[in-house]
Design a binder for these strands. Structure first.
Lengths: 197, 197
DNA sequence: TTACCTTTGCTAACACTGTTAGGAAAAAAG
DNA sequence: CTTTTTTCCTAACAGTGTTAGCAAAGGTAA
């Protein structure tokens, strides 16, 4: 009875082709340019076939958003492991966040809805990201005399600084030079760490 | 020859009606929901009339974005004038920025393209906003021993913190409680100021 | 092999979107 | 009362996401 298995494999292959071609488009021209009809054209199937694999257009896009969060989370974990002490870990993670966003603007724009109407619970997909950061912050705080610092609050501050920097950089594009942005990042994170102690 | 004058007045009135009705829609359902056809319906004119007043849909939206920057700039100036010393001024301006964004999310989303594909030189419309902040930062720095602090860099950091906070808050909507967000703002700005000295 | 049934994938439509060409009607000028 | 100009509309073009309904192909059982 390998027939149904082959069928399932073939169907899965179509699904993967949809994802692949859709991602090509998103990466090339941004998520705004993604169109069901264009995908259908690229995969050489008719339009309704896509709806056999995805509920709607947004479902395809949120697939990419999830993937983005997975990659970011992994990058930050790696950065954390390479650094020796908590302070360095926090700096490394900020750097990883920044580098990810700069090298994968298509992902980032999707993840944080920098130009997205849905944002239907995308925050839920952050998975892991917050744990890495909160853990590190907790360790830094533990070494200071202010033991009852609100770690959750600090985490939000950390995240806000990063996201603000990145989204301004992405929206403003050229105009600003790369050097300044790197400096702003370092400056902001340094200020954040000083305020922890 | 008051005829042409009346004509101009009438035309101007139509333009204002377009803006008014369009703004109603944007405020009610976000800029995504704005449609030329819906405007035409609301103003009781046919579709092409709108194109006699605006080059395209984006031109209407960027009109609102400009207006938003004007309002924000005024709010920050007022906040600055009420505060006594530079440090308090900076805090007041951060507060004004936050309050503006929370009370006028429709404007903010338009201004910073939180869900915008265009962002065609919208940064240019910041007018005034940066001057207020850089001036205040300069004054604070002048009182410290680190006279050659890069004010431009500090301004970017300040802005990034604010924008990050606001855009996360706007995108995440409910989930977080209002109190925490206010605290994050205060925490971040406090850290920023500490790092100036 | 034939009859049946299920799965697959298509055409074509619906209801929208922004934008524009071209012509009709109204207003002003001669 | 004509002629010219301005105003404004109809209708089309080229797209968009989404879905109903049908035809053809594939596998199953008699």
């Amino acid at each position: 009875m390998g027939i149904t298995e082959r069928r399932i494999r073939e169907k899965e292959k179509v699904r993967e082709t949809i994802i692949a071609k859709a991602w090509e488009m998103v990466q090339a021209d941004g998520w705004e340019a993604l169109s069901i009809r264009k995908i259908a054209d690229a995969i050489e199937y008719s339009v309704p076939v896509i709806y056999d694999h995805f509920e709607n257009k947004e479902a395809i896009l949120s697939e990419f958003a999830k993937e983005g969060f997975r990659i970011l989370s992994k990058k930050m974990e790696q950065a954390k492991q390479k650094a020796a002490n908590p302070v360095e870990q926090l700096k490394a993670m900020a750097d990883a966040y920044w580098n990810f966003a700069m090298k994968n603007t298509a992902y980032y724009r999707l993840m944080y809805g920098v130009g997205m109407q849905c944002c239907s619970g995308l925050g839920k997909d952050k998975e892991g990201f917050d744990d890495h950061v909160t853990d590190t912050i907790r360790q830094i705080v533990a070494k200071t005399k202010y033991k009852n610092t609100n770690v959750c609050l600090k985490y939000h501050t950390f995240w806000s600084i990063l996201h603000g920097l990145v989204s301004i950089k992405i929206t403003e594009q050229s105009r600003q030079d790369r050097e300044l942005n790197k400096l702003v990042l370092q400056d902001a994170i340094e200020g954040f760490i000083k305020n922890l102690k």
